[in-house]
């Protein structure tokens, strides 16, 4: 639903600074979705007993780091119009959700708490879908 509002906001504005931020948002979202979906795939494999915890930790660590870099880089953007400011807020909050979910998985795996990691699957799925939609907003 948040994404629906976001899409409406985006379709309304076509100014140049808006477009630039939108391009950046879309690219950021696609990069972030990659890490979220990797994390989800790893947890699913763990759940099915198809993966050891060591390599799983490694892969989730990497995903978290990469996601953190992506999110930080987007937060340094400068929204110059009101529409851009709203988009900026929305994307940041979507990214925050993604980081929270992946970090929760990383902590759970660090404590070898598989059940806690599996509880994040729904959040990861949702986060991935949100990011996918933002990713489609621009080329």
């Amino acid at each position: 639903m948040a994404v629906g509002v976001l899409a409406a906001v985006l379709l309304a504005g076509c100014g140049d600074p808006d477009q630039k931020l939108r391009d950046n948002a879309a690219q950021t979202a696609r990069t972030a979705a990659s890490d979220v979906n990797t994390t989800r795939l790893v947890v699913e494999q763990l759940q099915a007993h198809r993966l050891w915890i060591q390599p799983a930790r490694r892969m989730v660590d990497d995903a978290e780091k990469s996601l953190g870099t992506t999110a930080d880089s987007f937060s340094t953007q400068q929204p110059s119009t009101e529409q851009s400011a709203r988009l900026y807020e929305q994307v940041n909050s979507t990214l925050d959700d993604a980081v929270a979910a992946v970090t929760a998985v990383r902590i759970a795996l660090g404590n070898s708490d598989l059940a806690a990691a599996e509880r994040q699957l729904a959040a990861l799925q949702l986060s991935g879908e949100d990011l996918d939609q933002v990713g489609e907003l621009a080329k």
């Binding site: 696609r30 990069t31 979705a33 990659s34 979906n37 990797t38 795939l41 790893v42 494999q45 099915a48 007993h49 198809r50 993966l51 050891w52 390599p55 490694r58 892969m59 990497d62 990469s66 991935g128 996918d132 990713g135």
Partner: peptide, 24 residues
């Protein structure tokens, strides 16, 4: 799945999905 490969772990993941621990 919209996953971009940036680590060696990701390169190995399809084999994990196909064959599990032995595959890995």
């Amino acid at each position: 799945a919209g996953i971009q490969v940036g680590t060696l772990g990701q390169v190995a993941l399809p084999v994990v999905v196909a064959f599990g621990k032995i595959g890995l």
